[in-house]
Write a protein that binds this DNA or RNA. Structure first.
Length: 715
DNA sequence: TGGATGACTTAGAACACCGCGC
DNA sequence: GCGCGGTGTTCTAAGTCATCCA
């Protein structure tokens, strides 16, 4: 139970509440938004337009040729072509034979300049190219200006590739490999059957992986132990193999203690030592953590190769405990441009391959040995390449908003279809839309944990109740989704859906597929026909973002204090996290920290009643004396009461927020599902500093949204 | 059509760091 | 100066979805 992070009853209720209100909101707001959409179309007033308008204004002086202006306006009007289609979808655009789509604010001459630039000219020292139009800013402090400009490169104001290529020039230094294995000191012993035993280096290394995890629940699991032991034996010498035949006779405790002591020693290191390590990390970051992509220095997301260790699958993963082998340069494929300075493999080694594929975004890749899948080194979320994709994702979701009514009407109609496959497709789509379920690809049995999504739901995952409590046609879902997180929900559905489900269940065993005539490929093909670029996951993005927007409208009170507004924001965020089933294990220190906070609240309450008493006394005093001094005293006491009240409220808000957040993870939705422009607009509208909502990393990731959304932005 | 593969996004946990109160 | 607790960052597993190929 614990393992699957089953939620308590209270939480289920809470979800139910949110779901319910969510669907109500949906219907209510759909009407509202339908009207608004019409309105918007009339005025051609989408936020992207506004954004472009903003930049159009800003760059006005740069654009002198009337012709060019007309062309820009043409582009603005042609927003569907320009903004909303994926680069792959607009391959054969006339005039654009260079693979770029210009941003509205760039005239032809600037584009020419860009095209003429030779990407080969870039190097590690000369990449900080100031933005076009700012070239003349270089003065005495040219370097500084240049740096600042580059640090805030607004890629969203520039051209996009439309020929499917992701870059023209890519140069990097390759990945950082895991440090080689350092054998244990002689005094740290491994025992077999109570007797010390010296292990060969390869066997010892794998043993240390297990020893490091000794305190973890993993090492108590049979599958983990079995897989580990099998792989460990492969690393042993034949002699070791003949001796070590039973994992239960192995004693890793001395090794484990040694690592704990090491970790403790690391914590106890002097400031200087810590500083030295920090500097070394910084050096590595500076050397390997960045690449040059099309004239810009971009941060790499994961430049370190995953170190060897034991595979930690989630849930009941059949491969947990297997040895994740060490990755060597000979396993690595490097991707960079032909004309770049290729990364050098460590001395005495060579890369598996060096290729120059600009249709992909990765810099290096290798095949891991557990599932045989490919792992990549890619750019940081703040990079142009990730940001563009993110922005595009939300634009697709916004397009869905425009036609979601039609799509809903269609699937409702399809519930009545004569064809079973169409009915199944329509019911599945209803679940994906209403409950924000994932698509649910098929998985190879025995290769991964048994988890499902919508299309892969089995009969055993749902229960039907014609009547439950005071509700009719209730469906109970109970299954493990991504990361083996349990999805449990009871929802009333429409009669037709219920009847269809009864039909789908007929003559089936618990382990049979609920939607036996459906898979994600069929579903997505259908969605593609309904809207260009529509897939199952777009519904999750759309429903998450629209829910945030509605909840913010509903919960925010302009008279509230900033902490109260932030609580409203967190509650809106929470509604989305519940919808998307983003859970977390309650923090280990939760109860304790909650108690500490409660103590603070109690203390503050005592302070408040004392301050109130003092105020009362001061008032009485003033009533008796009527002098200035006593009047001043009353004012002071009143202010003190006010201050304490505010402090108390702040603490109470904090406690509420924390309690409500106990098992809910807000980060995932904030980072992946919520159109950041909604949050930015909300901040601007209610005077909330953006730092209160997004931390530094998040601000970097969403720089495009922070720059372009104004207070009136509508998703 | 369906399986395999590759490229990419989404996910929670673990770890690192930093500020605050004592 | 130290330890605690909370937040931010990193890590890497586990999804989605498009494309290729038989």
């Amino acid at each position: 139970d614990k393992e699957h992070r089953h939620k308590d009853h209270k939480k289920d209720k809470e979800r139910e509440k949110f779901k319910h209100s969510n669907s109500e909101h949906k219907e209510h707001s759909e009407k509202k938004h339908r009207d608004k959409d019409k309105e918007r179309l009339k005025h051609s007033d989408s936020s992207s337009d506004k954004h472009r308008q903003k930049h159009k204004d800003r760059d006005k002086d740069k654009r002198r040729e009337e012709k060019v202006c007309l062309w820009v306006v043409g582009m603005l009007l042609n927003e569907k072509l320009y903004m909303y289609r994926s680069p792959a979808g607009i391959k054969s655009e006339p005039e654009e034979d260079n693979g770029f789509y210009p941003s509205p604010q760039h005239n032809k001459s600037s584009r020419q300049e860009y095209d003429d630039e030779d990407p080969k000219k870039s190097s590690w020292n000369t990449t900080k190219r100031p933005k076009r139009g700012n070239m003349n800013k270089k003065g005495t402090d040219g370097k500084k200006v240049k740096k600042e400009e580059e640090e805030k490169w607004k890629w969203w104001e520039e051209e996009r590739y439309t020929d499917g290529s992701k870059w023209r020039f890519l140069e990097h230094k390759g990945p950082v490999f895991a440090p080689p294995y350092e054998p244990l000191p002689g005094k740290v012993k491994f025992y077999y059957g109570g007797k010390p035993m010296k292990l060969s280096a390869p066997a010892e290394e794998v043993a240390t992986f297990f020893a490091k995890m000794l305190d973890h629940e993993y090492t108590t699991k049979d599958i983990f132990r079995k897989n580990f032991f099998k792989d460990w034996r492969k690393e042993m010498t034949s002699e070791e193999k003949s001796v070590i035949t039973d994992l239960n006779k192995c004693d890793f405790s001395e090794m484990s203690e040694y690592f704990k002591a090491q970790s403790e020693a690391r914590k106890q290191m002097s400031k200087e030592e810590k500083q030295k390590i920090k500097e070394e990390n910084e050096r590595l970051l500076q050397e390997y953590g960045f690449c040059i992509m099309d004239n810009h220095k971009e941060r790499i997301g994961n430049f370190r190769i995953e170190p060897p260790g034991l595979f930690r699958g989630r849930g009941d993963h059949p491969k947990m405990g297997m040895l994740k082998r060490r990755i060597r340069p000979e396993d690595i494929i490097i991707n960079c441009s032909k004309d770049s300075k290729h990364p050098k493999p460590p001395p005495g080694t060579k890369w598996k391959e060096v290729r120059h594929d600009n249709k992909v975004t990765w810099l290096a890749s290798w095949t891991e040995n557990i599932q045989g899948s490919i792992k990549y080194i890619m750019l940081n979320p703040s990079s142009r390449i990730k940001g563009e994709k993110d922005w595009q994702k939300y634009e697709t979701a916004r397009r869905l908003k425009k036609c979601v009514d039609r799509i809903r009407a269609q699937y409702r109609e399809d519930w009545k279809s004569k064809e079973m496959r169409i009915r199944q497709r329509a019911v599945a789509l209803y679940f994906i839309d209403k409950l924000a379920l994932r698509a649910g690809n098929e998985k190879e049995e025995g290769e991964t944990a048994d988890t499902v999504g919508c299309c892969s739901l089995r009969v055993e995952h749902i229960k039907l109740y014609p009547k439950l409590d005071d509700q009719e046609y209730v469906v109970e879902f109970d299954f493990l989704g991504k990361d083996s997180i349990r999805y449990y929900n009871k929802i009333p559905v429409e009669k037709r859906v219920f009847k269809n489900l009864q039909l789908f269940l007929e003559n089936k065993q618990p382990e049979d597929d609920l939607f036996d005539r459906l898979n994600t490929s069929i579903l997505n093909k259908h969605l593609q026909e309904l809207m260009d670029g529509l897939t199952a996951k777009v519904f999750r993005t759309y429903n998450a973002s629209i829910t945030l927007q509605q909840q913010l409208k509903e919960l925010t009170c302009s008279d509230d204090s900033i902490p109260a507004k932030i609580l409203s924001y967190n509650r809106a965020n929470r509604a989305v996290a519940i919808l998307c089933n983003h859970q977390r294990a309650p923090p280990k220190t939760f109860e304790k920290s909650m108690q500490n906070l409660q103590n603070k609240i109690d203390e503050k309450q005592n302070q408040l009643s004392a301050a109130r008493k003092q105020l009362k006394a001061a008032k009485a005093d003033h009533k008796a004396s009527h002098d200035d001094k006593s009047k001043k005293a009353v004012e002071m006491k009143r202010k003190a009461v006010q201050r304490i009240e505010e402090q108390l409220m702040k603490l109470q808000v904090q406690a509420t927020d924390r309690e409500e957040n106990k098992q809910i993870a807000l980060g995932t939705s904030k980072l992946n599902y919520l159109d950041p422009r909604i949050s930015v607009a909300w901040c601007k509208k209610f005077g909330i500093p953006i730092e209160k909502i997004y931390n530094k990393t998040q601000r970097e990731k969403f720089a495009w949204a922070i720059d372009m959304a104004d207070k009136d932005y509508e998703f």
